[in-house]
Design a protein around this nucleic acid. Structure first.
Lengths: 343, 343
DNA sequence: GTTAGCACTCATTCCCGTCGAGTGCTAACA
DNA sequence: TGTTAGCACTCGACGGGAATGAGTGCTAAC
């Protein structure tokens, strides 16, 4: 890392330029940016050095230079300028957040949309599992004739339905029984035994066959591994970048962004504290080798944890993305504290 | 419509061929399909006639012909062969449906996915509004400290949350009051007055400011115009077709498929009874001028209505799509009847 | 250490000839 | 009268240079 100040400035200028244009950057272009009063020949020498050191790549002999993964890495670590988010955007963000007096779960989903709005890149956000939040209530409601709906309230609301007939009164009584057993438990603590006990209590006033169906469904609903939810916003934005002007590449990426399983793995990856970038080959997924991610882990006061990830081309506007995530995390933290503590 | 049998056969052969290849079809290709023992010269004469009549288009002098919108229309109305859906696909569909013992609402969403699976095109399905289904139950549950969740059960489950503190007991009592007033009403019948009456009953045991917040939220949730839900499946499939090898076109189409407002208009358009195609310029939306839709309206026994639409290139496999929708509609009708009547 | 100058490289663009698929027309045939 | 063989013609696709120009590396002079 023994880069002279001049080399740093040149590298920075090259990457800044390349982020804007996606075209290889030539020595003349840099020399004309004048702030450093050097001729193109001098810049060329420095560029040759930077290439030798691994920070730049020359696509072919007579082309300019583009940053290597290492170049971007150095840029993100040491060179990136501070990005000032417009006061308008901040105000907009705040008003968006205020208008959404809502459940944490919805807030999270919304945060992904906001991040995408601010950065103009695709975002992926994972909502925490909720098997750590206790069961507040279970409802049994007869809806259409022949259908009974089960509603399990934890931090979220899950619902399922069973196709049996049960009177309103039957629902009521069964609901009370279920609540007596389950309320206060955490979903993963519920076992077959717990359910069996409910059955014992209910046998008598509900036909066994019906009871079985309902309780089976209840068990499934409660224990269905409270999946990490994944929300993707603005996936189509990738089509704006020349990196994806090839339809096949675009399709591959969009398929990836549709694949919840892969995205869960992505969200589960360790990206350390705070806001961090993973650049090109640093990514585990083959398909992300030419892209970069900027990820931010978050934890809710209630204990859940998740991750917000911005996905873009390697030449993404890192400083803007970092600043945006920082802003969002601050604003939301304020909001969450306000809701939790009332101040 | 005074097309000779021979012209019909030729037109049919051309469209069948073009649907498979997306390349202009030449006279020789058709003549070699031998079933009609004609030379390419004769075919050429017929093709020239068909072009003059408006059923075919010649992209340029020395190219073959492609079908015009009118050509497709004639094909769909009179020429299309019956498509036999593989027995495997039928079995698969049935097992998929069986394994999803579930709420109608989910079933609808699922139907869209199945249609997309069978046809390999993008599908858009609209779920009926539910403001015609009565309120079965309203729940008031304290979840996190400082958050009260409202759950309104109609045919669907809607939920919202308010950031106030209310004891479990308070929730319970308020819930009972609300249910006494709202249960059995239809969402659109609920007025400010209805809510005011609840308030009168509850004043006393809940602080006014808290009560106001909760009831405001309740009113919003109940009357929020029970939106027509729209589900899009397999939007990325368009990227498979040469019609969308241009990234800009693909992006425009994907944006369209992301735009719920436009899709609602699409779902609201009148497409008549049963299964119908709208081809190219027959579509109202600019962006669909080079695509075709096949739409099927459905009504639920409970009264709600919606539409399942398959979107693909104009040269889509109409017969397969028609057959698929027909199959789905039959299977689901069976299923719905079974659930409603128990047989 | 910096820079001007110059030869060199190589992707891009454009031109142009060739190829071939496919047509329309005409004349001959059944 | 309908069908077909034959032929000239059209025009997009493909491929090989030539010209262009952006950008480089190297050298020599400052």
């Amino acid at each position: 890392m023994d880069l002279s100040d001049r080399k740093k400035k040149i590298l920075q200028a090259i990457i800044d330029e390349y982020i804007g244009t996606a075209e290889p950057v030539g020595s003349r272009a840099i020399s004309k940016k004048e702030n450093l009063g050097l001729s193109s020949a001098t810049i060329r020498n420095e560029m040759a050095d930077l290439e030798e050191m691994g920070y730049l790549i020359q696509p072919h002999t007579s082309a300019g230079r583009i940053p290597s993964d290492e170049g971007y890495r150095f840029y993100v670590n040491s060179l990136m300028r501070d990005y000032k988010i417009g006061i308008d955007a901040v105000a907009q963000l705040q008003s968006m957040l205020e208008s959404r007096v809502s459940l944490l779960d919805k807030l999270i989903r919304y945060a992904g949309a906001i991040a995408s709005n601010l950065t103009e890149y695709t975002t992926v956000i994972s909502a925490p599992k909720d098997d750590d939040s206790e069961i507040k209530k279970v409802d049994v409601v007869a809806v259409e004739s022949h259908t009974v709906m089960l509603i399990v309230v934890t931090r979220r609301v899950r619902n399922a339905s069973v196709n049996v007939s049960l009177s309103g009164e039957g629902c009521e009584r069964l609901g009370q029984l279920i609540n007596k057993s389950l309320a206060g438990m955490k979903p993963h603590e519920v076992t077959r035994d717990t359910i069996e006990k409910i059955k014992d209590g209910a046998t008598g006033f509900i036909k066994d066959s019906i009871l079985d169906k309902i309780l089976d469904c209840l068990y499934d609903t409660v224990t269905a591994d409270a999946e990490t939810e994944i929300y993707v916003t603005n996936a189509n934005s990738i089509l704006r970048y020349p990196e994806f002007s090839d339809v096949d590449k675009a399709r591959d990426m969009l398929s990836f962004l549709d694949d919840k399983e892969k995205l869960k793995k992505l969200a589960a990856a360790d990206t350390g504290e705070g806001i961090n970038a993973t650049i090109g080959k640093e990514n585990d997924f083959e398909i992300l080798q030419d892209s970069s991610l900027v990820s931010m882990n978050y934890t809710l006061p209630s204990g859940g944890a998740g991750k917000l990830t911005v996905i873009g081309p390697k030449r993404m506007n890192y400083s803007k993305v970092f600043a945006s995530l920082d802003l969002i995390s601050n604003e939301i933290e304020k909001l969450v504290n306000y809701y939790m503590n009332g101040s």
